[in-house]
Nucleic acid binder design. Structure first.
Lengths: 221, 221
DNA sequence: TTCCGCAATCTTGTATGGTAGATGCTTTTT
DNA sequence: AAAAAGCATCTACCATACAAGATTGCGGAA
């Protein structure tokens, strides 16, 4: 035991702040200070400061020395490049999986899609979102590069803030249909179709950004 | 001014430790402590601790709570996946650049290659390495995703530690020839050839890893 | 009225002391 | 002799105090 630092105060503060930022409880541009957060959580400045450092390195906070710390505004160009990174990696993943599909691949993906349909029918959007994420992470695992997904996950936080602003807009039916396309192309070893399906799937979120910027201009830089 | 934190002690310690780790002055498995480093640099433990946090998040250190902090050993699988990430992104970059090459693209790349040839003739391996890095970063800039290169750069630290163990092995002549291939394919808009040339260029380092593991087994996990 | 300067008061950065957990060696017990 | 208990001594974690840059607003001078 104790091989990780999950039990530390700093770790808890990191999690709490990250959740608040991604879920827009703390809004882009909000000014916070080590003392504020420390008082709010009833701890000293020290672990809060360390949490700030971690979150700043993840691109969620901006520490302005001797001035203040602010919740980083969403950078449209940053979002664009995060998507570029995600698409680059996921396309390469889908290629590798489709090039050499294992026998059990199709069944694994189909099971996940079935779960998603259940969550969609139950209108459990939180579970649906979790399963959507799992679908993509599973593809990474099948390609033997699960660590690469962890990287995407870090950058996805930026995208998730935008997603949170557009809740309810996304059509789960359409996402499921696209997942089915991807799964089918993968299990039949059709690399070209798999890549095209993945690109189309990822491109769908594209249109949302400009509209969101107009709706919430203060949250963007 | 002062919009950054470059002037802080913690920042300097980060840089110094990172250089020591990448250049193998601090070797994988070495045990260090906040007190050690603090005494060595003549500062207090606080900025050292913050430097540890940053470096741990970058994957160079492993903090074992209440036990010690060690220079992280190189993970062969991590190196493999870092290469996967790099190849995914760089291939996508080269596609975009080659798909829509700007008029000045060819000249920019040719100039860089010329500089590299000069550095190679002068046997200035440090400058050669810097220019090699600049070549790739320039491609990212031409694709409009310079931030993506920054991401690669973070992961490249892991690869650089391996590279440092194999100094002198790489042939600069061959690297230059490959850069020329890439530049030519890009400026003529030959997407397929550009992608193939980039993959070949990145794959060349592949063979070195297994040999390096045999030569320095203690540095790997 | 406008502008300049200064001081109160924010902020983050740094130093240091104390706490608790983990390790390893010594001593004690069986 | 072997195993277990105790203790010295590491470590990172946390709390607190102080330092120094940055901001704000007030007051006096032009």
């Amino acid at each position: 035991m104790g091989e990780t630092l999950e039990g530390t105060i700093a770790f808890r503060v990191v999690g709490a702040l990250r959740d608040d930022i991604v879920s827009m409880v703390l809004k882009p541009g909000d000014v916070i200070s080590e003392s504020d957060i420390a008082a709010r959580y009833g701890v000293s400045r020290q672990p809060v400061r360390e949490a700030f450092i971690r979150l700043a390195q993840q691109g969620l906070l901006l520490i302005r020395p001797k001035r203040a710390t602010v919740v980083k505004k969403i950078s449209p160009d940053g979002v664009r490049q995060s998507r570029f990174i995600r698409e680059s990696i996921e396309v390469e993943i889908i290629r590798r999986v489709a090039t050499d599909p294992k026998p059990e691949t199709g069944q694994i993906l189909d099971d996940l899609i079935a779960d998603q349909e259940a969550a969609s029918s139950a209108h459990d959007s939180r579970r649906f979102h979790k399963l959507d994420e799992l679908f993509h992470r599973t593809l990474a695992r099948l390609a033997g590069v699960e660590y690469a997904w962890q990287l995407i996950d870090d950058h996805k936080m930026q995208l998730d803030r935008v997603r949170y602003l557009t809740l309810g807009v996304s059509s789960s039916q359409r996402a499921i249909a696209e997942h089915k396309q991807i799964a089918k192309a993968v299990s039949t070893g059709d690399v070209v179709a798999a890549e095209a399906a993945m690109r189309a799937h990822l491109a769908r979120a594209e249109v949302l950004l400009s509209q969101t910027i107009e709706d919430f201009p203060d949250y963007f830089e």
